[in-house]
Amino acid sequence: MIDNGMGWHMIFLSAFLINNIVLIRFLGLCSFFGVSNQFDTALGMSMAVTFVMTMASIVTWFAWHFILLPLHLEFLKIALFILVIAALVQLIELYLKKMIPTIYEAMGIFLPLITTNCAILGLALLNIDYSLSFFNTIVYSLGVAMGYSLAILIFSGIRERIDIAPIPHILQGSPIIFIMAGLMSMIFLGFSHLFGL
């Protein structure tokens, strides 16, 4: 859906709105449903995801173009990427804990959740699939991360309202949350014809 010929602003918009990673591409749903019950936790999670996503994309881009491709080890892609992401998350966690405790307090508890957030690995694989250039990889990752944040922040706002809304008994709990996500997904689907893509 993305390629280098699109120009960076279109890549960004496509990642941010049109092909929203959560609502259209179905990546990162565990955390999307898991931590969207309160606005504050959603904010912490989206900060952590934005940070790790961009870092992970950069690191995996280098790993792919400078290690796996030259050595013809393409078949180690999945194993190496997931290990790189796991190690990266650990490093970031250690660094923040020691050096910047205020940020660690805001998003630290979400970091361990992120290793198995399929949006991170998915994005790393998509960057490779689309064979994006280094600059476009960063643009695309930022777009995807901001799209994730946008979706989860709006959704957490809705869920705070749902808690006090009268809902048929049978749909209480998770069913209504899925249906709300479906309605939001419909809204994002509407962006698809916005920019003549």
Partner: peptide
């Protein structure tokens, strides 16, 4: 994409009804 969320939502509601659990 929206259909996936909506159908799964109703499937979960159905399972909840069948098992009569508040579990979810």
């Amino acid at each position: 994409p929206p259909g996936a969320f909506i159908v799964l939502g109703f499937m979960i509601a159905g399972v909840k009804r069948l098992t009569r659990e508040k579990g979810c």
